[in-house]
Simulated assay, not measured.
Amino acid sequence: MENKEQLERLAYEYQLLQAQAQLLAQNLELLTLGKNEFQAVKETLEGLKNVEEEKPEILVPIGAGSFLKGRIEDKNNAIVSVGSGYAIEKSIDDAIVYLEERIKEYESAIAKTQEALHQLEHKLQELAQKAQQLQQKQAMSFKVPKK
């Protein structure tokens, strides 16, 4: 009976850790998407620095894969989101530095999340091994009643 209770406890703990791992994996996906978005903006601004035209023509996305033609009036400055619905104007170089800092923050958060996920996966493997050992003990101690 003791083995059965231990197996039930291990199964419950395994389910909890599995749920935590799933949340961490989802968080990791969101962090990666966020980092990629900042990276794309940074690359766009870096590309803009190399454009010689004073007011280059661009395509402005308006949704559903549709665009409007437009012109960049000021290619030396960008309005950058600083969070909580606020945005500020920065020079292109300052905006790139700001974006690089945000990317580094994302990379740090990604690394920490990956490490936490790795530790959880290790714990899950340990629990699975313990459960397997208990099941083997239980199977070996099972006796067929004599008639």
Rank of each mutant, 00 (worst) to 15 (best):
Q114R: 10
E8L: 12
Y86V: 08
E115C: 09
Q6D: 09
K69Q: 06
Q22C: 10
F38W: 03
Y12E: 05
L10D: 00
S141Y: 13
Q133K: 14
K104T: 13
F67W: 12
A78D: 01
E5S: 11
K123Q: 12
D74W: 03
S108R: 12
E126S: 11
G83M: 01
G70T: 09
I92V: 08
E101K: 11
Y12C: 04
E89I: 09
I58M: 08
K42E: 02
L28P: 01
N50I: 07
E121L: 04
K69M: 06
L59C: 11
E107H: 05
E53D: 07
I72Q: 13
V144E: 15
G47M: 08
I58W: 02
V41Q: 11
V97P: 00
K130G: 04
S141M: 13
G85R: 06
E29M: 11
E37R: 14
A131Q: 08
A21Y: 00
Q138K: 08
K147M: 15
T32Y: 00
E57L: 12
L16M: 06
K42C: 07
E13V: 02
Y106V: 02
E2Y: 09
Y98H: 01
F67G: 11
I62W: 00
G70A: 11
E8D: 06
T32P: 05
V60T: 07
Q114N: 10
G65R: 15
E52L: 12
I62D: 03
Q136N: 13
K112D: 14
A64K: 14
L124W: 00
A19N: 11
K137S: 08
S66H: 13
E100Y: 05
L59H: 12
L23Q: 06
A87H: 09
Q132T: 13
L68A: 09
G34L: 05
Q119T: 12
F38V: 11
V41E: 06
F67K: 08
P61Y: 02
Q135M: 09
